[in-house]
């Protein structure tokens, strides 16, 4: 079964340089049978980066893509609080560079106009857009989006796809929040491997709207792969979740950039 990982970051240990960290990530992905990894954000992390910081993090990702062109797919990390700089970075890394997606984290709520403008430009470039979300029992970060806010944004995207990072973490709430918005995809990554997660997602969203991701290296590959390997769903659904859905979303930009898949 092909496995593409939607959601990885540089390991926090295992090398001083971006190259060493990427090598480690791929070495361990090999053990788990993972064919391709979407990689975004550099190190150290910044929740609300200034433009020079997110450019530097994107440079770290860009630096490892040529060596692992057949394994890594880069997503550009942007901060919508700096809209003009983010749009310029989108041009540098996606329109004129090798990256194929956009990562939006916790700096700015996603139901705002500046996020909408960035996402729409990304769609013009055929880039896949990933928006982190959480429904926390305590308080979210000041700029952290919820799945409900993402569903609100998704209504304004003319049916174009957007990925709900972590499915809100509290996945039973997250799945409910995005269920009616058919252009929202659920990312399985970055939460405990609680039994029933994937089964509920398949039941409520359909397997065509669910994408495997790990959130490695903070998470293990194992705990996240188990959400699919261990789920009581048909093998055809597992194939969709492990690779086919992500490939379908990425195919237009991969073809445009001449990236074989």
């Amino acid at each position: 079964m092909r496995i593409w990982d939607l959601h990885t970051h540089f390991p926090t240990t295992g090398g001083a340089t971006a190259e060493q960290r990427a090598d480690k990530l791929i070495r361990i992905a090999d053990r788990m049978g993972i064919e391709r990894l979407c990689l975004y954000m550099g190190f150290p992390w910044s929740q609300d980066p200034a433009p020079e910081k997110f450019r530097a993090e994107n440079d770290q990702v860009l630096s490892v893509l040529p060596k692992h062109a057949d394994r890594l797919l880069g997503f550009v990390y942007l901060n919508p609080k700096h809209e003009d700089a983010s749009l310029a970075e989108l041009e540098r890394c996606v329109a004129n560079g090798p990256m194929v997606g956009v990562k939006l984290w916790v700096a700015q709520h996603c139901n705002t106009l500046e996020v909408e403008r960035i996402v729409k430009r990304a769609h013009e470039l055929k880039a896949v857009v990933f928006q982190h979300t959480w429904f926390k029992a305590g308080e979210n970060y000041a700029g952290e989006s919820t799945p409900s806010e993402l569903a609100e944004l998704a209504q304004r995207l003319d049916g174009k796809p957007i990925i709900c990072g972590h499915t809100g973490g509290d996945w039973e709430r997250g799945i409910r929040a995005i269920a009616a918005q058919k252009n929202v995809f659920a990312d399985l990554a970055g939460s405990d491997p609680v039994a029933g997660y994937t089964e509920m997602a398949v039941r409520e969203l359909g397997a065509e709207r669910i994408i495997y991701g790990s959130d490695a290296s903070g998470r293990s590959f194992s705990s996240q792969l188990a959400k699919v390997h261990g789920a009581d769903i048909p093998d055809a659904a597992k194939r969709l979740i492990f690779a086919e859905n992500l490939i379908r979303l990425l195919a237009p930009i991969l073809r445009e950039k001449g990236i074989k898949f």
């Binding site: 491997p193 609680v194 705990s223 390997h229």
Partner: peptide, 18 residues
Amino acid sequence: YAPVFYHEAAKLKLQESD
């Protein structure tokens, strides 16, 4: 931590480390 967690998570950890 089965059955709260998917049992495969722990099993795969034996494979993920060298």
